[in-house]
Design a protein around this nucleic acid. Structure first.
Lengths: 207, 207
DNA sequence: CCGCGCATCGGTCCTGAGACCGATACGCGC
DNA sequence: GCGCGTATCGGTCTCAGGACCGATGCGCGG
């Protein structure tokens, strides 16, 4: 029997979730909480297998509560269910350890499937959350650096940790040439040292 | 009317998808393809709004076809539907520009909802794909660097581009101390210069 | 108590990095 | 033809970075 903790500051919502969860075979609501702090406390007393967590709650928000519960109970899976489809909520919740992020307007049938999936160890996000996650992490808008092709090559090698002499040998040019390119890069990217170039390269997803 | 291209090397699968799609109001199958190359060609002749794409296909796989179609038709949304739930497929497909990744055992009702979501500009992944995406991009297993707390502080500042003297001022210690820590870091992390430290810090997700 | 790891600090020495100066050659557009 | 940007190359000079030497104090466990 999978024990579920329901955390939401609205009693009506908790009641709905309780009915929904209890209607699913193998699942049982083992506790309720009206604030993030309460959720953490209840989870400490009765370790849940699954947590349905709201984000906006008094005392402590659901993100922070998620972080603490995940830290204290690694086996617990947290499914965020919120009204507000905000970027920071999504990223924050997932970084805090949440395994899912759904909106409250999700149809009950899908919610149940999601609960099952999360309880089984998988993860699940609402469509808009998924889109933004992909945009942010998988296909981030590669910042355009206004540099020439040759300079880009040099930048990549710098970011790999090669010394100027090594870059020269790699590109079959002289040390002077490499230094010229590096100087141009420093100027164009507003960097003081090659360390800043490495940082710029990483931030621009060149590596 | 949303035009859908169905690409799969099995005629039976195509037929199933065609019936499913045509049964949804506002959607219409505008073309079929049995290989990745065919999919690209058909898409070029009759630009689709949505593509249902298999991965394993002769001539060209669905990932590469996705890449080309997304490059040529930015408005086209690609939904990968495959039998094989492999990591490389998921990461590859999303990097290629796919907006969704589902398994063929997805129930028809959910598939239809997914098609609608993807056509509306959102994204959707199956539960296991979502989990692995999160594990890989949002909460990557931070490599443990065997360094002291103080060294970690110095490393972070180095990775931010601070010079030794600036680090010294920031931490209220002498330049000598910073140099000592940096030397220890170079030794422990097997780095030759501070550039390697920056790289190590980025790879270890310290920044 | 004594050893060990950690953090702190100072000095010397050498080298790569980067600024700044110069130059040539090539392609491209006006 | 001439200017402009890019890529190439050389020299000089300064300085931060890093190696290597030394040292002290502190906490912690055998």
């Amino acid at each position: 029997m999978i024990k579920v903790l329901v955390a939401d500051d609205q009693p009506l919502i908790r009641e709905s979730f309780r009915r929904l969860i209890d209607s699913v075979p193998g699942f049982q609501v083992s506790g309720e909480a009206a604030t993030g702090a309460q959720a953490v406390a209840v989870a400490a007393g009765e370790p849940p297998d699954l947590v349905l967590m709201d984000v906006r709650m008094p005392e402590m928000d659901g993100i922070e509560a998620t972080r603490r519960i995940c830290a204290g109970h690694p086996q617990a899976r947290v499914l965020i269910v919120t009204t507000f489809d905000l970027d920071e909520y999504v990223y924050g919740a997932l970084q805090a350890g949440a395994a899912g992020f759904l909106l409250k307007d999700t149809p009950p049938a899908e919610l149940i499937r999601s609960v099952r999936a999360v309880a089984a160890g998988d993860s699940l996000l609402g469509p808009s959350a998924t889109r933004r996650l992909i945009e942010r992490y998988v296909n981030p808008p590669a910042r355009r650096l206004d540099i020439t092709e040759r300079e880009r090559e040099v930048l990549v090698l710098v970011a790999r940790g090669l010394a100027n002499a090594e870059i020269a040998r790699t590109l079959y040019v002289s040390l002077s040439t490499v230094k010229t390119h590096v100087s141009s890069l420093l100027l164009k990217l507003g960097a003081r040292t090659r360390v800043h170039l490495v940082i710029a390269a990483y931030e621009a997803n060149l590596v």
